[in-house]
């Protein structure tokens, strides 16, 4: 009896991610959700610029590679014209909380009925470890070489808390994938975020605290611990919003408005 195997919605190809980078875990959880809800055939994934820009190689559903920060807008274009499709974005913190902040806020304000998988690893990974909006105070990166100083580089953004204030946001939960129990909880949240979309509840976002061993300058195992000791205290896990917005967007020709 198979207890654990590669989900079908995950393409049988190796990931390009660094050793120990937990992007791979989250990819698997998303694919498991697509399998379990049997929505891979309906799904359209949008991955913008960032370490996950190659996500179009990793999922078996239709995929779009979007401009940096613009995945929520691209997703809106897909969802509004094809409301029966299950549309999800898979974005990093530099993407969602820096250049794409307007798109992030307004996709929430509009209550777009899509699912956002948001990877928060406190850094810009693909470009080699620069400070991100989520970089912790005091955290050293290539563009905060003396540690992030709030007086100069401002303070981190708590995305789940911010988005939970928007009426159009139905579900916002922050999870982590640094331990097996946390991964199991993250899985539940991701499945719920997709189920919400099926039930047309409004915008669902799962913020996943994730690691970046290479740019944090840590071993994979130490990186998982750093999530526990430094990230989670700053970014508390939990559900920040869980409602049914019932904001059925007037979408396509079928539904009119």
């Amino acid at each position: 009896m198979v207890v654990f195997d590669r989900p079908k919605s995950l393409s049988p190809v190796p990931f390009h991610y660094c050793p120990g980078c937990t992007h791979g875990i989250v990819h698997r959880l998303v694919a498991e959700a697509l399998d379990e809800l049997d929505i891979c055939g309906k799904a359209v994934g949008i991955a913008p610029v960032g370490c996950s820009v190659f996500a179009y190689n990793y999922f078996e559903c239709d995929m779009i590679e979007a401009a940096h920060g613009r995945a929520p807008a691209v997703a809106t274009g897909v969802k509004r014209t094809h409301p029966d499709n299950i549309v999800f974005t898979y974005q990093g913190d530099g993407d969602l909380a820096a250049i794409g902040t307007a798109e992030t806020v307004h996709v929430g304000a509009r209550g777009e009925n899509i699912t956002i998988i948001f990877i928060n690893n406190c850094i810009y990974g693909m470009t080699g470890g620069q400070m991100a909006p989520t970089t912790l105070p005091g955290q050293v990166t290539t563009t905060s070489p003396y540690g992030r100083d709030r007086r100069i580089q401002g303070s981190p953004i708590h995305v789940c808390e911010m988005l939970s204030t928007l009426d159009g946001v139905a579900y916002a939960e922050r999870v982590a994938v640094n331990t097996v129990p946390n991964i199991k909880k993250a899985k539940k949240a991701i499945v719920k975020a997709f189920q919400n979309q099926i039930d047309k509840k409004g915008l669902s976002i799962v913020e996943v605290l994730s690691t970046c061993p290479t740019n944090w300058g840590m071993t994979p195992e130490a990186a998982l611990k750093w999530v526990e000791t430094d990230m989670i205290p700053f970014y508390p896990l939990g559900v920040y919003k869980d409602t049914d917005v019932k904001l059925l967007n007037p979408t396509s020709t079928k539904e009119g408005n």
Partner: peptide, 19 residues
């Protein structure tokens, strides 16, 4: 066959079967 190894593996390397 607790599959904790497979759960934490970032590259989906591990398949676990229980007899």
């Amino acid at each position: 066959a607790c599959a904790m190894c497979a759960t934490i593996c970032p590259d989906v390397v591990i398949k676990v079967e229980k007899e």
